[in-house]
Design a protein around this nucleic acid. Sequence first.
DNA 1: CATGATTAGTCAGCATTTTGACTAGGATTG
DNA 2: CAATCCTAGTCAAAATGCTGACTAATCATG
Lengths: 193, 193
Amino acid sequence: MALRHAVLAALLDGEYSGYQLAKIFDLSVSNFWHAVPQQLYSELAKLETEGLISGRQIIQHDRPNKRVYTVTPAGIDELERFAAVPAKPGIIRENLLVMVQAVDHISAPAVITQLESRALVAAAKVELFERTLQHLRGDLDEEEYLRNASPVGPYLTCLRGRRFEQENYEWFTSTARLLRMRAGIQAEGETSA
Amino acid sequence: MALRHAVLAALLDGEYSGYQLAKIFDLSVSNFWHAVPQQLYSELAKLETEGLISGRQIIQHDRPNKRVYTVTPAGIDELERFAAVPAKPGIIRENLLVMVQAVDHISAPAVITQLESRALVAAAKVELFERTLQHLRGDLDEEEYLRNASPVGPYLTCLRGRRFEQENYEWFTSTARLLRMRAGIQAEGETSA
DNA sequence: CATGATTAGTCAGCATTTTGACTAGGATTG
DNA sequence: CAATCCTAGTCAAAATGCTGACTAATCATG
């Protein structure tokens, strides 16, 4: 019973189908919760039978019909209870860091390549979050938005996500550079003097 | 088949028992891989039957005997193969951020309390990592350590962990303060003018 | 005008993770 | 000197997560 609260929290923000939710999870929600589409479909079904969300069919003529969901008052109550008990500490699983942990014992170039490609991914995510934040706050500046605007929750989690990816970018980049240097490998664009 | 590489990577650094490894996972390794003790015991058993680690019994008289493990050459090969294929993107699951995402719809004080208590935890982790880094580098300064010293992998992942917890601390703290302000709740120590 | 991408899912089943209960002896603390 | 903590695990079962295969219609591309 863990995914359910992430789904409920994501649905607070609008009426979405499983398919749409899968995209949202892939982008913004992945900052604090990871889930693959199939998990969402089955969790939505369970949440609906439990009455925490309610779905309705949308007939579409240009593309397949879909079922969109909204959080019910019972769903809000569930979130309320969820927030009342201490959250379990967060978990991280990052294979690339496992590789770096082992880098003294294995071939460094493989790890360096991965660091460099993940740095690009991280940079793209930073930009995406940047745009999301701009979009959320519209023409207000950040301070004003934070002071008054609503909803503020998604903005705050997005701030955390952006920061996380910024730090990822910097660590991936500097770690790759360092390992290159130690291995005596020239970075792309560098030349030996 | 994912935990196995984290276990192998952790064991590169010395000869540990399941029990010791559980503590190590709880502290430093949790920066990049989360696992509970029972997972480690069963994973160690599997790794040993597969010949990727080898264990030996240590007879102790003052406390229960234990079985300690070291990575075999086959285990190193396994890590090598692991590093040769692109790592899956990392995953995060953080219930406290789920609560913040939902904060506009639920009781804010519950969330604020949790943010404040997790800020303390994060601050303690920062200090722990700080001490770990100092211990690893001994009397060298960081630049020199990074340039030459060995092993460098655990130092690098610890740097990432420290940074992550620093950012957690700052985000928890500033988010709690902001939510207090928006709710019109005085922070501890503050007084209304 | 065929090929592939996108939307919008379903179904079955394996794999992994987590929880909880239990053992057992020595060390520590009130 | 009884109660609790720490070391060092084992076992079974429940809960959760993930993979892969499949359907089916429309839209975009070459």
